[in-house]
Every structure is written in C-alpha cells, then in structure tokens.
Design a protein around this nucleic acid. Structure first.
Lengths: 164, 164
DNA sequence: GTATAAAAGGATCAAGATATCTAATTTGGG
DNA sequence: CCCAAATTAGATATCTTGATCCTTTTATAC
C-alpha cells in the first residue's frame, strides 16, 4: 500500500485481491443453488454485486480451473463442477490468485542456500498457516453453517425457472 | 492477480506488498546495528537490494510512523527509534501496508447488520490470526534467533565509521 | 561562511491489476 | 434454418503500486 500522501479513502480489502473476493462470492452463490440449477453470468453479477463484464472473466478462469462448468446458449449459465463439500476456499484462491509461498531468499543470497532467513521464514509460516486454514473450509460449510447472517447474498429470488 | 493470459513470470510476493517486504528488510538491517550506529539510505539500499530512490520513500514513511529516526547532513542516516525488542513485524506492516480487517459486509447487505456472513467471517479470522502472529515477533527475535542462515542480509561490512 | 553530505519532497513514469466494451462463438428453440 | 440467449475473446481504458529523477532543505566539518 502506502499510496504516498494519498487519502486512504475507503478500501475494503488488501490482503486478498479484489478478484479473489469476487470469485469467492460467485462460488458461494453457486453453492447455494440446487444441484441442477445453473446461474447466468448476469444473475451472478447482480447477486454478488460484481461488475458484470469483469465477473465474466473471473468465471471463465474458474471454468478453465475446473471448479465450475459452463453451458452456452439459452438456458445456459454456470454450475459447480463438483459437490460443494469437495471445494475449498483454497481451491478457489489457487485459481484466481494463488498465495505465493516464499521458497527461497528474495534477495539472491548465496550464503543461505535454500534456507530462509528468520524474517522470510516467519512470513512464509504465516502464509502456510493461512493456506492450511483455507484448505479446511469447504463451500458447503459456508453455506450450511448455522448463522444469524444469511449466507453471503440475498439471491435473486430463486425464481422458478427450472431447467431439465 | 490473474493477469489474464499473462505468463506468471517470476513473482515472488503477492500476499504482502513489495513495499512491506522492503520496509521489513530495512528494519531488520537497522536492528542488526549497534545501538548508536546509523545507516544511510544508500547503505540500506545496498544491503537490502532495494531500489535506492524507492527505499527513501519507504524510510520516510517509517520515520513519520515513529519507528525510526532520521538525521540529515553528513554522518546522518537512519536509526531505530526504540529498542529492537519492542518493535514487532506487525508494527512495521501497520505503517507501510496495514492489513485491512473486514469489519462489515463488503456487499452493503442491510440484512446482516454488523455481522459478517460465514465467508467473510472466515476470511477475517485468517487475517486476525496473521496479525496476532506478527504481533508476537519482534525485530530482536529475528536478529538473535539461532539459525543456520545469517540474518537477512550480508551487511555492508560494518565498516568502522563510528559516530559520536 | 562555504562546501559537502545527507534526508525530504515533488513531479513524473512504468507496470500490473481492475474494469469496460464490443465482437465472435456456441447453443437451444421455434 | 434462423433467431435469441448466453459464454468466450480480444482490445482498451482506468487506477493503484512500484520506481526514477531532480530539486530543496538540513546538518556537519572545515
């Protein structure tokens, strides 16, 4: 950060990228649907409040990443590629914005071969712990968790447009 | 991330900003010095392998943040403002690139008042745990930790230029 | 006081991430 | 077959971060 002498006006997120946030919102929305129910890019954009054009890109990369499937044409849309209890937060992050582990000294210090100095060791530990935590949380957990706050988004009224 | 269709060529860091990395390197270098020894921006830039012009900015914001002190003129430079065992990684991050906690629903959902939905609750938990971890690690720990890798940087040969 | 060494500050530039828009392609329905 | 709905794609604009350069200010030494 530190946009020098900038005004720090309302930013919501900086530790996860905006793109990661968008992807997670969309995935949770999809996980909330019935098995056979697909959502269009438009519907998802409204529900998640993500710029429609941009969400298309994000969804596309999720398709390429194998987490969701797409169907073109009328009645098409996006749908989870696997059951919601087999997709973790980490799976999503790894596609749109993988956390870069620190595997070697960022300064090219020959003296420590592959070993990290204490600073980078600690930084990488933190990343590792976060990865570990996210690998334990499935979309199903997020959707089913008993909570006072309805999960993520008021969906666009699961309107009765069932598809065969 | 997801520079679309970009080539992913060697990026070292994305969960912490480049600026944060630079600031931490500099702080560790300063912590390695004897109490009364100050380092110039030049010396620090060499030791930490950070672009000199940019490091100046970073150092300046650390000064404004009260973590280091600066002296102008010949024989000047930068020095820690407090003992190294009272400055944590979190202190540094909070100045150059504070981790933005999620305190309210990023979608402006009126339904959950101040409560977070499961997704954002988990994300914020992760941030919180990382903050907690970093608040426990002081610069002194990083410098003194017995390790096989010398701490961070081969310093510019603590040359004998003692100042009164 | 003058010269010199250093930080502070400002303006500007480059790159990456984010966002938008428009065309192209696929798919299903009449 | 043709139309409409939807994804895919490519090109482009915008904003933030990272980086550079140059001038100004401050402090020390002579």
């Amino acid at each position: 950060m530190a946009p020098w002498d900038a005004d720090l006006t309302e930013r919501t997120i900086n530790v996860f990228s905006q793109t990661a946030e968008y992807a997670l919102r969309a995935m949770v929305c999809l996980a909330q649907q019935r098995e056979d129910r697909s959502l269009t890019s438009q519907e998802l954009a409204e529900a998640t409040q993500v710029p429609p054009g941009y969400l298309s890109k994000v969804l596309h990369s999720l398709v390429r990443g194998g987490l969701i499937r797409s169907r073109r044409g009328v009645g098409g849309g996006f749908i989870l590629a696997r059951p919601a209890d087999t997709i973790t937060i980490l799976d999503v992050l790894n596609i749109v914005d993988p956390m870069q582990r620190i595997t070697f000294c960022p300064l090219g210090l020959q003296s420590h071969g592959t070993r990290l100095c204490p600073l980078h060791r600690k930084l990488d530990d933190a990343i590792a712990r976060t990865e570990e935590a996210f690998s334990q949380i499935t979309l199903a957990m997020l959707v089913n968790e008993p909570t006072l706050s309805p999960s993520l988004c008021e969906l666009p009224a699961p309107n009765p447009k069932p598809r065969p």
